[in-house]
Nucleic acid binder design. Structure first.
Lengths: 223, 223
DNA sequence: CGGATTATTGAGTAGCCTCAAGATACGTGG
DNA sequence: CCACGTATCTTGAGGCTACTCAATAATCCG
């Protein structure tokens, strides 16, 4: 079954700007694998390789010193990870787990290095994508700098609304994962959401959120 | 005075691997400036440009929502910043300030873009340096995930010691900056240091630190 | 040497975590 | 498709960490 490898290379922003013969050369070096929900795609023990999501989604997280799961982000089709190990940075303690049936492509470190030399444009593309990725990381770091959980939640909701360009939306993950992402406990998250509801800043039914008063929500961010 | 521009390009890891004629071409596009202690080198209002430190040092920081200064890192000769704006990521709220008499080189965004196309090796070098830089960011993010300040401090000291390969060293910045870097207040930092001293894990005289018991220090990190 | 910044120490308080128990939702198999 | 078991979410109570404010001590720097 080489068809999956084809899909992978042609789908992914990192490669899809190349012409067909060039894509073909890359396909030859790529390995495609399928995972079921809950399976671990990579861990610190895994070999260093570039991991690209072609279908489904991954949860990327770390385990903190005391063993707690620290949610980092969700990787969707086209997203990748593991490129930093190419450049001498060890993947200290990153984990990836399938959130659903997911298809992933792997590219060996050395193969990837060869490709970068062969296709200089690839470097530029990678630089661009890295910049975007670190902008994402940036947002999470900004979250952590906020000492009050109320602020973090307001920032998170405001960001979601901005990205989706909607004032009504569904939370993209479970409360416990959002809590982990915000660096807090599910209990506190639950309470803070209640507080925003009581203050008539949002309404919520399960994961369904409506922002009633964006102005006040953004005032909370500024403390 | 074009001599400074020469120094800048030949000193900096990003360019110093190029041969002389190539370096010459870059020199022509580079602008060098000197700053005194306390002067602001760039702010969110500045034009997007690559900023390279050739002499002295910069303090890179953000202002948080509530107006507090959030220390990010010190940039030493050879370090650079502002490359992400090249790739569509806006430099939302980064500031740089000279910590001493400092010399800095600027390279316009468009010029840099041209250079990257002319010298593909530059992209690879930049990818490598970016990876190192994000490893640094990584360490700070790891810090912020630790909820106890005691843990953060232990991690910070342990890291310093590891990087310097010494158990006796000088803290590289003022207490207030360390506090900001660790995401805490100077008061708490002072108290936590005292605590480590009383527990005979470290000794301290001013900025001079000696680690007495690395084992216990690292146990603190794990909570 | 003297003014200004930075560091320490103390006291009081607010926010958030933990633990525990109950309620709700999810998903799996009969 | 419904029922049951399990995981997730909510709500409450209590305790502790680290923040703020304030005052003194120590340092830096011209």
């Amino acid at each position: 079954m080489t068809t999956h490898e084809h899909i992978c290379v042609s789908i992914v922003p990192l490669f899809n700007h190349l012409n067909s013969p060039d894509q073909k050369r890359i396909k030859d070096r790529v390995i495609s694998k399928k995972y079921d929900k809950g399976e671990v795609i990579f861990s610190p023990d895994s070999d260093d390789q570039l991991t690209i999501v072609s279908r489904g989604s991954l949860k990327i997280y770390r385990l903190s010193e005391n063993g707690k799961e620290r949610f980092l982000r969700i990787a969707k089709p086209g997203d990748y990870d593991g490129e930093s190990s190419l450049f001498g940075v060890t993947n200290d303690n990153m984990f990836a787990e399938a959130l659903e049936k997911t298809e992933v492509c792997f590219l060996r470190q050395s193969d990837f290095q060869d490709l970068l030399k062969e296709y200089p444009d690839l470097s530029l593309k990678l630089l661009t994508m890295n910049a975007q990725k670190s902008a994402q990381t940036e947002i999470q770091t900004q979250l952590l700098w906020m000492e009050k959980i109320e602020q973090r939640l307001a920032f998170y909701l405001s960001n979601l609304s901005y990205e989706l360009d909607l004032e009504v939306f569904e939370l993209p993950m479970q409360m416990k994962d959002i809590a982990s992402y915000l660096g807090t406990s599910p209990e506190t998250l639950s309470r803070e959401l209640k507080r925003l509801e009581r203050a008539q800043i949002i309404t919520r039914t399960r994961r369904h959120i409506q922002i009633l008063d964006m102005d006040r929500l953004e005032k909370i961010i500024e403390n």
